[in-house]
């Protein structure tokens, strides 16, 4: 090949074709979707929005997906990950979107329905092995603190002896732990979306 101009135009054309094909045209198409008024009882509370930032900060999205696949692509629905597949509408408010690509841990799109208990979530974040034997999820002790003085208000976790810190001081959640739990509990796709079975 001896014409740099052909090389240049070809390199440009192939790049632009895919830029439009799998990036900009899908964006134009999907951006026209607007959730229909009452259809979406969705949008994070301030606390949950703060929790979502912690979800990203700790890298939860690298082991947990937030998407339910249709029946032909996996047994997500038979497994009870959701009553329907997730759709474009479910993510309209998400920035950044945290769909996830790995299920080292379970999908969380409907964790708010499957596990509504604050206490369970707090124990699980403090040390996942308290409530889920065999789990390889990290513990997040920095989202909790020891109750030392009267100023440390909060409900101490009911931690089994085996998992208590050596000094046996009561453990209470920080605001960050409460925010993250609020976010996890807000993950519910329990409404219908038009056109999605």
């Amino acid at each position: 090949m001896n014409r740099a101009i052909i090389l240049f135009l070809g390199v440009l054309a192939t790049f632009i074709s895919a830029l439009f094909g799998i990036n900009l045209i899908p964006k134009l198409q999907i951006d026209t979707v607007r959730p229909e008024g009452t259809l979406l009882p969705y949008g994070y509370s301030e606390l949950a929005a703060r929790g979502r930032k912690i979800y990203i900060r700790e890298g939860c999205l690298y082991c947990h997906t937030q998407q339910v696949r249709p029946k032909q692509d996996g047994s997500d629905i038979p497994r009870g990950l959701g009553m329907r597949q997730t759709a474009v509408d479910d993510y309209v408010h998400d920035n950044p979107i945290v769909l996830g690509t790995s299920r080292t841990g379970p999908d969380l799109m409907n964790i708010g329905i499957r596990q509504p208990s604050d206490e369970w979530h707090l124990l699980h974040l403090y040390n996942p092995r308290i409530v889920s034997q065999g789990s390889v999820m990290p513990s997040f002790p920095w989202l909790f603190k020891e109750q030392v003085t009267a100023a440390d208000t909060g409900v101490p976790l009911k931690i089994p002896d085996k998992f208590m810190p050596k000094n046996k001081r009561p453990i209470i959640p920080t605001d960050e732990a409460l925010a993250l739990v609020e976010y996890l509990k807000s993950l519910k796709r329990d409404y219908k979306v038009k056109g999605v079975p």
Binding site: K27, V88, V92
Partner: peptide, 22 residues
């Protein structure tokens, strides 16, 4: 252009995922 476009603050929701994997 690949990474400059990817860092434009014009994406959110599902199009952001499409851009992300592009």
């Amino acid at each position: 252009p690949l990474y400059m476009i990817a860092n434009l603050p014009i994406y959110s929701g599902v199009p952001q995922a499409a851009m992300n994997w592009w």
